[in-house]
Design a protein around this nucleic acid. Structure first.
Lengths: 103, 103
DNA sequence: ATGATGCGTTAGTCATGACTTACCGTAAGC
DNA sequence: GCTTACGGTAAGTCATGACTAACGCATCAT
């Protein structure tokens, strides 16, 4: 699923954000990622699974290796939610300031 | 702390997002919020505490009630992180597409 | 002063999830 | 064929955190 809810839940974990930051510099295989991270390879695998089902990464088999890269669609959904939320909050924020002025 | 890390961690919880959505329509007191939510009032209090320490809401004492409203600053930090991350990811994504075209 | 309302806090329970170890399947190299 | 690298999966442990019930404190009304 590629909605903001699952995306935000996935972005909550610091290790998962680390993985995304690595992938933001270019595609990488699971082993490469694990070598640069403070957790085991299976842990990375599980995080990648979570990121994938949230639509934040794509994977591609290359021989025996499996290369992951960021999927912009997932990030877009989160940005959209945040932007829509921001607009709404800011509107009511200003409306509140206005109504307080009149008193 | 008002950085993206704490903000994202706080946004991960669905109940907390519900609270924020309510507050996006205007300031509200704790009891009002709790009445419209599927959890107890103490739970709402604790969530508000988490939201407050992440810089996402402000509170204001009004008599015996305590009115909460969204603090735009916290949301801004998260948006900034996401935007910066999105740009970086999209660049390397396009670069990858380009390099694949040439093969 | 007394009662009532509104909230924060504490203690304790329970579920979730992040992690490791061990294992299994698969693709490449000798 | 056999072995070796790579990665997903299963099982089990442990910490975190979301929640409720109970309590205490402050503010307003009578």
């Amino acid at each position: 699923m590629t909605n903001a809810s699952s995306g935000l839940a996935v972005l909550a974990d610091p290790t998962r954000r680390l993985i995304l930051e690595r992938l933001a510099d270019g595609p990488q295989a699971v082993g490469e990622l694990a070598r640069g991270l403070p957790v085991s390879r299976p842990a990375v695998s599980q995080h990648l699974q979570a990121l994938k089902s949230a639509g934040l990464v794509r994977d591609q088999a290359v021989g025996t290796r499996r290369v992951y890269q960021i999927d912009p669609a997932g990030l877009g959904a989160i940005r959209a939610w945040l932007d829509q939320f921001w607009d709404r909050a800011f509107d009511s924020f200003q409306a509140e300031v206005e109504s307080e002025k009149k008193e």
